[in-house]
Structures are given as structure tokens and as C-alpha cells.
Amino acid sequence: MSVRLSLLAAARSSALLATQFDDDRPLDAVGWQEVERAAPVLCRLAAAELRYCSPSARCRETGEGLGLRPLPQPALRDCDMGRWRGRTLGEVAAAEPAAVETWLADPRSAPHGGESLLAFITRVGGWLDTRPVEDAAGLLAVAEPGVVRAALVYALQAPPHAYWRIDVQPLSVVTLAGRSGKWDLRLEA
């Protein structure tokens, strides 16, 4: 038996616009408007028997705004960016260019003192692999774009560098079907 898990990327916040690392800002006004406009299309996601979300404010608010009432899951938090938290990539690159270069090139590195890309992907994958398979109604997770990217890399058994090549837009949905260690990507209309 397999499980169907839909991953919904959270609506935008001002942190997304500024590309700040791991900043727990709530939805901004435009994000709330996007949720309102998308609600008629995304209401189908409420059919999921189990609904989860990243513990960030914007993921919780996206889920609540869509009437999903998701349960926060610590394992779905965004990558721990250590001392880079709340800073933009530009700020960090200006202050620590060698550290940024190392971080982008080596998925095992964590020059910021937080979590490496590989550890992040493994954490999210561990959460995926522990989902109950007897749930016929499906699962839903409202997550940060980085979490969606990590889940896709893990599920497709892609190399960690593929993470940087996946673009996840706010309020986009992707579905994974399968079970522990064996996932398929489903694109739905």
C-alpha cells in the first residue's frame, strides 16, 4: 500500500522577497491576498485526512487561511542557518564570501554553524519515510519552499546539488506517492 502526500508551498512573506535565511516572518498583505485568491482552487486539499505544516508563521497562516487547520511538525522546519539566520545571501556573501562558496559547493558543509544541506535533506526525508501508509485519504503538508525542495531531492533520490535547481513558487502544489524509500512524483492539473 502507498500513501499520497501533497506538498503545498507557503504563501509569500516579506522575508521571501528579501531572500532572508530562516526568518520566521508572518504572511505579508500580498501573501494574504494570494491565499484568498487561491482558496477556491486549493480547497480540494482539505480532503486530506492528515494535514501538517512547517512550524513557521507563514506556513501556519497559509494553512489556516485556506481553512486546512494543519498540525505543525518540527521535522518540517526550514534549514537551520545558524549565524546567517535573518540575513540575506547578499549580506552573507559580502561578509563571508569563502564560507558561502563552500556552502554552495559542498552539501556536507555548514559554515554558518547550523545544518548542512545534506543533513536538512535527510531530516525532511526521514519525516517523509515515517508517514502512515494506511491513510487512503491522503496527506498534506504546508511547507517552506526549501522544505519542498528537500523533499523532492530526497524522494527522487537526486544528488544534493539538485536542490539548487528546483524552483518552488508560493502556493504551488506537488504530490508524492509511495512509501518509505520508494517515492514517485505526480504532477496534477
Rank of each mutant, 00 (worst) to 15 (best):
L42T: 07
R25S: 02
A47P: 09
L42W: 08
A46F: 07
V35L: 04
W32A: 08
S56P: 13
C43V: 10
A29C: 10
G63E: 00
Q73V: 12
E34L: 10
C79I: 15
E36D: 11
G65C: 06
V35E: 00
L76G: 02
L50M: 13
V41P: 04
R58L: 00
A48T: 02
L45T: 02
G65Q: 09
A38P: 06
E64N: 12
Q20K: 13
Q20R: 15
G31F: 11
L45S: 04
S14A: 07
R37S: 01
R77C: 09
E36T: 12
R51M: 01
P55Q: 06
L76C: 05
A38I: 02
S54P: 05
L76V: 05
S56Q: 12
C79W: 15
Q73Y: 01
A29S: 14
P70A: 01
L45G: 02
E49D: 11
S56Y: 15
A29K: 15
S14I: 03
P26F: 13
G65D: 09
A15Q: 14
D23S: 14
D22M: 13
T62Q: 00
D22I: 11
L50Y: 14
C53W: 06
G67E: 13
G31W: 14
D24A: 01
P72K: 11
P72S: 03
Y52S: 03
A57I: 05
L50C: 12
D22E: 14
P40H: 08
S54L: 01
A57L: 12
A39E: 07
R37P: 05
R60S: 02
Q33M: 01
L76P: 11
G63L: 05
L16Y: 13
C79A: 09
S54V: 00
E61N: 06
E49A: 06
P55G: 04
A39H: 12
T62S: 00
R25W: 11
D24T: 04
S14Y: 02
V30H: 08
Q20M: 12
P70Q: 00
G63V: 02
L42N: 08
A48S: 04
A39W: 10
P40I: 01
P40M: 05
W32Y: 13
L42C: 09
V41H: 12
D23F: 15
A75P: 12
G65Y: 07
L50T: 08
R60W: 05
R51Y: 03
E34Q: 15
V30K: 09
L17F: 07
E64L: 10
L42R: 08
A46E: 06
R37A: 01
D28Y: 13
S54G: 09
V41A: 05
R37W: 11
Y52L: 11
D22A: 13
